[in-house]
């Protein structure tokens, strides 16, 4: 169970298709390691977003993280990434 929890991350294929769909040239490819690294980066981004909005909710004594909490942390989050 613990091992399963640690494995939560974006799938390599997802990253591959996602980035490829953004490339201007069709020829451009993504190496396998780059995809994994990218997945890791996005994971960090998401975790950061989650934890920060959670902190915001905590400081406001809310039991549920609402959209306004996320809105408050979003500017700084985008500046940091």
């Amino acid at each position: 169970m613990a091992a399963k929890e640690e494995e939560i991350s974006f799938r390599k294929e997802t990253i591959n298709t996602l980035l490829s769909s953004f490339f201007k040239e069709d020829k451009t490819k993504l190496s396998g390691d780059a995809a994994l690294l990218m997945a890791e980066m996005l994971k960090v981004f998401v975790q950061e977003a989650a934890v920060r909005s959670q902190k915001q909710a905590e400081s406001e004594d809310c039991n549920q993280v609402e959209i306004e909490h996320f809105e408050k942390i979003l500017p700084q989050l985008l500046l940091d990434f």
Partner: peptide
Amino acid sequence: REFSRQVVAAIAETT
């Protein structure tokens, strides 16, 4: 602390 679905959607969009 639970995340509301809106938050999840917003984070996904930002990603």
